[in-house]
């Protein structure tokens, strides 16, 4: 397989982009959330895009940034999983291995000045252990019990930390869903490149489950009362 075979050193920019991805660890595993929007600049171009992607039996990756680069990542990870499967020897790649591999690819592409323009979260559950880690276009990596990419790092991460830190082993799936929903709502209210339609992924001992698209119910009536800027000046 020739990942980044091209040494095309002309720097690019992201074109069709996804916004934040959120993730947290809870009692039974890892939960991840991302909305269904792929923007073209400020245009809400594609409103039914899936940004959470299963890799093998134990892992989900969630992507912000360039969506075509993300599709390329999906493609070569699929190839990797097939290669691993065909060896049929009982050894398979867990989330930690997939994250390491992804980091190597991201870092080597940045070193060729031809990055894959994404911020990715890798979440998973294997052998009784949950895994959650980050990697981006620079090859920077880190793990924590709550993670958020893009605007989520500013808007959602403080909420996630407050709700989750120190309670990773008590949080139930219902509570985790509630936390995710409230964070996605904050993002929808404040991030102009976001959508009120999103998906949740849960990765537990039972494997990977990615939900159908969910809708955020929001209220905008307060907007009527806002005065002093925008169209209404008094």
């Amino acid at each position: 397989m020739s990942i980044a075979a091209q040494t095309d050193s002309c720097p690019r920019q992201p074109i069709v982009t996804g916004t934040s991805v959120l993730a947290l660890k809870y009692k039974d595993g890892v939960m991840m959330a991302a909305d269904n929007l792929a923007s073209y600049g400020s245009l809400a171009r594609f409103k039914d895009i899936q940004r959470l992607h299963p890799v093998g039996k134990y892992t989900v990756i969630g992507a912000g940034g360039d969506m075509s680069d993300f599709q390329y990542i999906q493609k070569f990870l699929e190839q990797l999983i097939i290669e691993e499967f065909t060896s049929q020897d009982g050894h398979d790649l867990g989330p930690a291995q997939i994250h390491e591999y992804l980091s190597q690819v991201m870092y080597s592409r940045r070193s060729k000045i031809n990055p894959l323009w994404n911020s990715l979260l890798v979440g998973g559950f294997k052998d009784g252990k949950s895994f959650l880690s980050y990697v981006d276009l620079l090859g920077t990596t880190y793990s924590a019990t709550t993670l958020a990419t893009g605007f989520g790092a500013y808007l959602a991460q403080p909420i996630l930390r407050k709700e989750v830190e120190g309670r990773e082993n008590e949080l139930t799936e219902e509570e985790a869903i509630r936390i995710m929903e409230s964070c996605m709502k904050v993002l929808y209210y404040r991030d102009a490149r976001s959508l009120d339609k999103y998906q949740l992924a849960v990765i537990t001992a039972d494997g990977v489950k990615i939900s159908e698209s969910r809708h955020l119910s929001t209220t905008w009536s307060f907007a009527e009362g806002i005065r002093g800027y925008g169209a209404q000046t008094q």
Binding site: D89, H91, Q97, E100
Partner: peptide
Amino acid sequence: LFNRAIPVNR
């Protein structure tokens, strides 16, 4: 590449 000790059979 994978931060994994290579399986012996491989």
